[in-house]
């Protein structure tokens, strides 16, 4: 998985495959972006090809962290397998998802 972070814009763009092996860099990234001031945090997943249950778990953790800092977490434009996973686990109702 690759990540690009835009601190001032409060946005993380993820690409590739999001699995258990990514948990440390992802956590760091979330901590970093929540440390910067702003309102909503957007995770752009449009270039993410694959997510497993560990990846979904990390999104839940990120949502929890965001909530603690009174920020909203938005998932932007899921597609393919990621979109299907969001549908089957109803994550699309748990998170604010922008199409």
């Amino acid at each position: 998985m690759q990540m690009q972070i835009d601190r001032t814009g409060g946005q993380i763009a993820m690409s590739g495959e999001f699995t258990f092996t990514d948990h440390i860099p992802f956590k760091q990234m979330v901590t970093e972006i929540l440390a910067a001031p702003g309102k909503a945090v957007v995770i752009d997943v449009s270039k993410l090809d694959f997510i497993d249950s560990a990846g979904l778990g990390m999104l839940l953790l990120a949502r929890d962290e965001a909530k603690k800092s009174h920020r909203e977490l938005i998932l932007r434009r899921p597609s393919g397998q990621v979109k299907r996973m969001f549908a089957v686990t109803k994550f699309n109702t748990l998170f604010k998802v922008e199409e």
Binding site: S53, L56, L60, A87, V88, T89, K90, L94
Partner: peptide, 8 residues
Amino acid sequence: SSGFPLGV
């Protein structure tokens, strides 16, 4: 088979 996973 859609539904929230258990424990969420």
